[in-house]
Amino acid sequence: MNSSSIVIGLVIVALILRRQLRTRPVRDRATFIWIGVLTVLGILAVTFGVKSVTDHHSLSTVTYSALAASCAVAAAFGAVRARTVQVWRGPEGEPLRKGTAVTAVAWLASIAANLGMETWIDSTTGVGVLGFSTVYLYLAVGLGAQALLVRRRAAAVTVPAAV
């Protein structure tokens, strides 16, 4: 993992956290654009990561299991974060959302978990290049799960009665 990759990762996480902690419409298209971009980057990065490892070593079932487990952990953290987001209807009935301090802590825990997953993935290959390549896919899966669950919660919130 080189310093430019770390900087890019930190910038992406900072941007995500900034957006998470601001009041925004629930049906914000930018969220799904972000998820799409991260998914494409994730698939490309993992593909190149797998290729760079398989040029010298074969991947084991444990490696593939670790990759799948990483996606499951990302989805689980997305579900947890979705429960920490405040959801309400605005004055015009539009669904709004805003992350809390607990959301930020859940993000930090998620990042720590991802670092652990990356280390585990790399230990299964004997080469330290595949784990870090999963970061974009991890973010995409986690954000996707969170966004879908927040949308579901927003649909259940009733419009406040007129006074």
Rank of each mutant, 00 (worst) to 15 (best):
P91G: 07
L59F: 09
A104L: 08
T54F: 00
G90Y: 03
V85S: 02
T31E: 13
C71H: 07
K51D: 11
Q146N: 04
G78D: 04
S70D: 06
L130E: 00
D28V: 15
T61V: 15
R151I: 13
F132S: 06
A113E: 01
P91Q: 12
I43E: 00
T47M: 09
G36D: 00
S70P: 04
P95F: 03
T84W: 15
A79C: 12
V150I: 10
A45T: 06
T63C: 06
I111D: 01
T103R: 02
A140Q: 02
L130K: 00
W34H: 09
F132Q: 09
W107I: 07
L149I: 10
V87N: 00
I111V: 08
P95T: 01
A30M: 11
G99C: 07
L108T: 01
D28E: 08
R89N: 06
F48T: 01
V127C: 00
A155R: 13
S52F: 01
Y138F: 15
R29E: 12
K98M: 12
Y64Q: 02
I33G: 09
L21H: 03
K51A: 14
A161L: 12
R81D: 03
L143H: 05
T31H: 10
L149D: 01
Y136C: 10
V129T: 02
G128N: 10
L38P: 00
G49F: 00
K51T: 02
Y138A: 06
V62I: 12
T103Y: 14
A75T: 07
L41M: 08
L148P: 03
F32W: 13
G93W: 12
V53Y: 01
V127E: 00
L44K: 02
S52Y: 01
A106D: 00
V135T: 05
R22N: 15
E94R: 09
T119S: 11
G142K: 11
A113M: 07
F132E: 05
T125I: 05
V102A: 12
V40Y: 15
S110Q: 05
V26A: 06
L115K: 14
S133R: 06
T158P: 12
A75E: 07
R153W: 11
L10G: 04
L15K: 10
V127H: 00
R29M: 13
T47Y: 03
L148M: 08
E118N: 05
L44Y: 14
V46H: 01
A161S: 14
W34F: 13
A162V: 14
I43W: 03
L148W: 14
I16A: 03
V105T: 09
W120K: 02
